[in-house]
Design a protein around this nucleic acid. Structure first.
Lengths: 161, 161
DNA sequence: ATAAACAGTACTTATTCAGTACGATTAGGA
DNA sequence: TCCTAATCGTACTGAATAAGTACTGTTTAT
């Protein structure tokens, strides 16, 4: 249904929280403060085991850096303005790939002869990709365009007009 | 993983086949000829029970019209140039909805208080939606932009350069 | 040395999707 | 009128995928 996995949703929430933490700590002059998984869990409401998994994936993807040991934790790997939604999705869900009849190492398409839609997929995919890359994390946090968000699942998309 | 369901992929293949059929029949002056599920199955390689299911969904969504009884079948509800990929996806997979923490009738988000990403989703969703609506069915069929299609799953998107 | 915190892996469970089967309805032709 | 070909609708089953959990190991500040 063209939807993100829950983990991806969590990831964006966590990243958003880290943006706040970074802003707070830099206001106090300590730009390198880390937040623990436990702390982030309490702030976001996401269960700790799950958020730990998300953070590990983000760290592996290079979006956050981790500090081990006591007083360790996570922080953003780069300024929030340079992180796009597309990056986060790519780390959590893999690269954007619309079509299902492709599978690396397998035959390209089970009906490559007769299927009349062999062409044109890449432009669709690229359009989505650039749409996701065009939205930065900072924009997600401060964009009260209209009061109705999280409503586009209910059939018509919330007008925002 | 931001991918379409197989049925959606089938649907686009079937619609593409119907475009060809419509073109052929109109060339013979019979613009209202219908193609049966059995015939479309043989042309696309998609198993007949499955393609029948797809066609039923498309008919329900108003993208194809059906004729019952002997010599019945399906045909496009409107010219191929007026049908967008977004429409087909909407019919098969429901409206484009990125976020998972929404569920009609339920509470909007389990962490609506602390979650810092309440805002900004609609612009992401709209961007994807317009990207999908911008590609018409006719463009999918005749767009040999480069030889490499169906390859954007393999990590980097096929350059097409 | 101890406790706190991340790293990695493996497992279990739940949800969703694809595919199939069956009976009902409709319309054309012998 | 009867038979056949085709869609319509629903329901069921199996499989693939994702989510969540648990456990063990490694690191580091106190």
């Amino acid at each position: 249904m063209i939807k993100l996995g829950k983990l991806t949703d969590y990831a964006i929430a966590v990243m958003g929280q880290l943006v706040h933490e970074a802003a707070d700590s830099s206001a106090q002059g300590e730009g390198t403060m880390s937040s623990s998984a436990h702390y982030l869990s309490s702030r976001t409401g996401i269960p700790e085991p799950t958020i730990a998994k998300v953070l590990k994936m983000l760290a592996k993807g290079g979006l956050v850096v981790s500090a081990r040991g006591a007083a360790g934790g996570y922080r953003l790997a780069k300024p929030a303005g340079q992180i796009s939604i597309g990056e986060i999705i790519a780390v959590m869900d893999g690269p954007v790939a619309i079509v299902s009849c492709v599978d690396p190492g397998q035959e390209p398409c089970m009906m490559s002869e007769t299927c009349p839609t062999r062409h044109g997929w890449s432009r669709v995919n690229d359009a989505i990709k650039s749409a996701l890359d065009g939205v930065k994390l900072t924009e997600m946090l401060s964009a009260p365009a209209c009061g109705k968000v999280h409503d586009f699942m209910k059939g018509e998309d919330a007008g925002c007009a």
